[in-house]
Design a protein around this nucleic acid. Structure first.
Lengths: 236, 236
DNA sequence: CCAAAAGTGTTGGCCCTACACCCATGG
DNA sequence: CCATGGGTGTAGGGCCAACACTTTTGG
């Protein structure tokens, strides 16, 4: 049974074509010939924890099950449901009468390529955060808050960027990720130095092939070493 | 009209007798001769924003109106309301039937002395976070999360410590505040240097009187200078 | 004169920044 | 041979941490 007072919304961020993008899902039943988008989200079930609901949405939308999702803020203005069209759509979709809804925002950085269209949510689409379409409720505000939050989160838990990257990645890919998220250029040499000094980014013996320039080395993220280094910090 | 699905809880932290303390309010109607405590909190009203509700609770409990309150996390486990006694009390108190409740946690650092007992909330009591009594729902978890959060918040917005301190304060008072919140000793000389280098902590010409040792200078927090310094950071 | 806290400078290490050149590869 | 990105070292500045003594005041 759905609990029609509280929802979760997931802001899934990824990088596509050198732009920071957010995953939007198609609104089903928006009307004939009309395609509208929204943040992936759902009313919670009566017996479901908030985090559980967020992981359900993540999985239904992307197929991912275990990437770290962070609760970053709740949104509860009574005027969230001021737009009658939005409420109407939600009532159709959930088959419930809804009044005011407080929503809990969750955030993740994840791979753009691997997401898939889904039975539950319909088509989804990675959209640059600078080119958002009209969105229902206060979804634009939620996205704005989420993009601010992601930087703070990466500083606390740098490992989340490796959920976004492929298992083997080049120094350039990692650098670009930081450049796009922080929206500034980073010095190549300093970046290499820092990367090598961390101890948990391990050079492999594989390199790129078939590139029209010197081939880049692939690196991998060593989770075990990372965890050891970070568990020490907690004690200090 | 109360909205019996969502509540706010305020974790008001302060320092008393060299210990980090949290404000707990008396549960009214707990039973004859029994004194029970809880976090100051309330169901939200139907037309009230979350932040509005949090400020209402702050004001009703402490008389403070404008100190910065930060939303830090929501708690929504279905088992929050597992304890029937807690639910019973809440139903008595609110005169409403309640089932599951999602609560939004707010956090502030504030002055211990100036709080006052209140008509709405009954007596309140500053209690060391290491000596909490039995608390209803998941209030202990909420306090634990809040004490973790306060450090991160001070780093982002150092001005909040001055809401806790009196208008004129000594270097020792400020240092003790940091020592207690971060739970480690700070070097006196380095602390003075840092304090003087910030530019928004202004020495006054007043000093302590009637102390059995060299009297300390009072400092004040210059909000205007602070804001100027910080608005530059936002642009960079 | 004693106890208690106030106040004050210097040094070394670490980390961050800025900056320029040669290397490997495919076309 | 050229275009493209890969990969490397050094020097200066700022910030933090460590460290000890003299001053003031009340009792």
């Amino acid at each position: 049974m759905l609990y029609p007072y509280v929802s979760v919304d997931c802001v899934l961020l990824g990088i596509d074509n050198e732009r920071l993008c957010v995953l939007l899902t198609e609104r089903k039943n928006a009307g004939i010939g009309i395609t509208e988008y929204k943040l992936p989200g759902s009313l919670i079930y009566e017996t479901e924890d908030l985090e559980e609901a967020a992981y359900r949405v993540l999985n239904e939308t992307t197929g991912f099950k275990r990437i770290p999702l962070k609760q970053f803020r709740s949104f509860g203005s009574p005027s969230r449901t001021a737009n009658k069209e939005d409420v109407q759509w939600l009532e159709n979709d959930s088959q419930m009468k809804v009044g005011r809804i407080v929503t809990v925002g969750y955030l993740a950085l994840c791979k753009v390529r691997k997401t898939k269209p889904d039975r539950v949510y319909g088509l989804s689409k990675w959209t640059p955060v600078t080119q958002l379409p009209r969105l229902p409720f206060d979804h634009k505000d939620i996205i704005t808050e989420a993009t601010k939050e992601i930087r703070a989160w990466i500083e606390i838990e740098p490992s989340i960027v490796f959920d976004y990257l492929p298992d083997k990645f080049t120094a350039l890919q990692l650098r670009r990720t930081y450049e796009i998220i922080y929206n500034k250029e980073l010095d190549v040499r300093n970046f290499h130095k820092k990367m090598n000094s961390l101890g948990y980014i391990i050079p492999t013996h594989e390199t790129e092939i078939n590139v029209p320039h010197r081939s880049a080395r692939f690196y991998r993220f060593d989770k075990v070493k990372y965890n050891k280094l970070h568990s020490k910090l907690n004690k200090a």
